[in-house]
Amino acid sequence: MARLKRSEVEPHEDYGFFGPGSVVWKVWGHPTAPTVGFQRAVVVEELDPPLVAAVHRTQGIYRRSRTRYDRTLRYFAMVAFAGSRQVCQAADVLVKVHSKAIGELPYGGGTYDANDPASQLWIQLTGWHSVLYAYERYGPGKLTEEEEREYWQACAVAAELQTCSPDDIPRSREGVRAYFERMRPRLSASPIARQAMHHLLRSELVLPPTPRWARPAALAAAKTQRIATIATLPRWMREMAGIRQSRLLDVLVVPVMKTAFALARLNTWVELRLLERLSPSTVAVVAPVKLGIPPHSEEVLTPAQARARHGYPRPAEAHLEFRARQAARVFGDGKAPSDQGLIESQDILGPLA
C-alpha cells in the first residue's frame, strides 16, 4: 500500500468494546469478513420485507453501490475495532440516517421503519452469523465451544449499539438457528427482494475503476467471490430468490477461497491494500489493529460505560423528536423525509459519493 505508511496510521482512542485476544478481533479481522461474510449478510437481509422496503425506498444500493458498501462495512468494522467514542458517534448518527427509511410496505400493507427493533435484530444476527459462517467455511474453521460462547456474547454487546435489545440476542449456535427458523415463515422473495439480492451479488459493482489490463483479473475475482457467497446460502433460500448454482461449484470454490484467503493473510500490507479496493473508508479503522498500533488508552469499555463517558443516549432513545418529525413528513404530509442525518453522517461513516 504505497500511500499508507505505518507512521501515518492514527491510533484509536481506546480498545473499544472488545480488544486484542478477543474472538471478535479473530473472526472479524480475517479477510473472509469484509468479502464473503459481509456480502452474504447484505444479500440474506433482503428477504425481510420491512428491510427490503427500506432499501428499495432509498435506492442507495443501486445509485451508489460502492459508497453504500463502503459506509456500511465501515460501520460494522468500527463496532469491532474502533475506539468507544467513535463507535458511539457512529451508532448515534446511524439512528438519524435510518430515520429516513420509513414508509408504506409495498406488499401486504403496513409500514416499515429501519429503526424498528425487529429489523435491527434481523440485521444484527444476519451480519454476525454470516461473518462467522464465512470464517468457518473459507477460513481457519470452526471456533471452539468457549470461543463460540464468547462470540455470541459479544454479538449481544454489539447489539447495545442498535435499537434492538441485547436480551433478544441468542447466546449459542442452537439459539441462532432457532431464531432463523422462527423468521423463515416471515421471509419473502418479493420482486424487490429478488432484484436487490441479485444486484448485491454483483461483486464487481463495489470495485474501484480498474486499468484495462487488470480488468480480466478483477472480474474473475469478483465472479469467484459471487460463487463463494452463493455457496454459503441454503438451497431453500436460493430457490426462493431464483439464484441458481451447481453443487459442483459449491464444492470446487472452497479450496480456491481457502487458498486465496490464506495467501492474503501472509502479508498485512497486501491485506490492507485488498481491503482498500473494497472499502477505502474502512482501512483507517482496521489498520491500527492489523499493524499492532496500540490505542492512546489500553481500555476495553462496555457500551454503557462508553455512553456515560462520552454523553450519548441508548440508540433506542436517541433523536426521538427528529424521528417523530420525519414520520410526520412522510405519513402526515406525504413528503419525502429529510436527508439531514445522511448528510451529517459523512464525517463519521464516510462520503456519500
Rank of each mutant, 00 (worst) to 15 (best):
A316D: 03
F180W: 12
I348A: 00
R314F: 03
G141S: 00
Y15R: 10
G139A: 05
R85W: 07
G19V: 11
T32Y: 03
P170D: 03
D250L: 15
A159P: 00
A264V: 14
E46R: 15
Q39F: 13
A308V: 07
G110Q: 07
F76A: 14
D70R: 09
P234T: 10
Q39H: 12
K223W: 11
Y75S: 04
P211Y: 07
L4N: 08
R74P: 01
V43W: 06
R184D: 08
G19K: 12
L4Q: 08
E8Y: 01
K142M: 03
Q245N: 05
R215F: 07
C88D: 04
S7A: 14
G60I: 09
W213D: 06
G242F: 06
G175K: 01
P294W: 08
T210A: 14
Y179R: 07
Q346H: 12
L51M: 13
Q340M: 14
V286A: 10
H198M: 04
R173L: 10
W269I: 08
G341L: 05
R247Y: 10
L266I: 10
A214I: 07
M1H: 14
P106M: 06
H319I: 04
P313F: 03
R68L: 04
E13V: 05
N267H: 14
T58W: 06
H199V: 07
Y69V: 09
V289H: 06
R66A: 13
A193Y: 06
T58G: 13
A156G: 05
E148S: 08
I348D: 00
V283Y: 06
V93E: 00
A222P: 06
L266P: 07
P294F: 01
I61F: 13
T224M: 14
D339N: 15
A159H: 01
V131S: 02
I169T: 00
P313Q: 12
G21M: 10
E148T: 15
R265I: 12
R202W: 11
L73C: 13
Y133D: 13
W213R: 15
A218G: 05
Q59F: 14
A222D: 04
T111D: 10
E13A: 15
L233P: 02
P117W: 01
W128K: 02
A118F: 11
M237A: 14
L94F: 00
P288F: 00
E150Y: 02
T58H: 10
S84T: 09
Y107V: 12
V27H: 04
A228F: 11
W128R: 02
V52P: 12
R247I: 10
W269H: 13
P313K: 13
F76L: 14
D167H: 07
A221R: 08
G21H: 04
R137A: 09
A91E: 00
R226A: 05
R273P: 11
Q305N: 01
P50A: 04
A218L: 02
F180V: 04
P234Y: 09
V206N: 01
E317G: 02
Q120S: 09
R184S: 15
V176P: 09
F331Q: 03
P208R: 07
L252M: 12
A218R: 05
P295A: 08
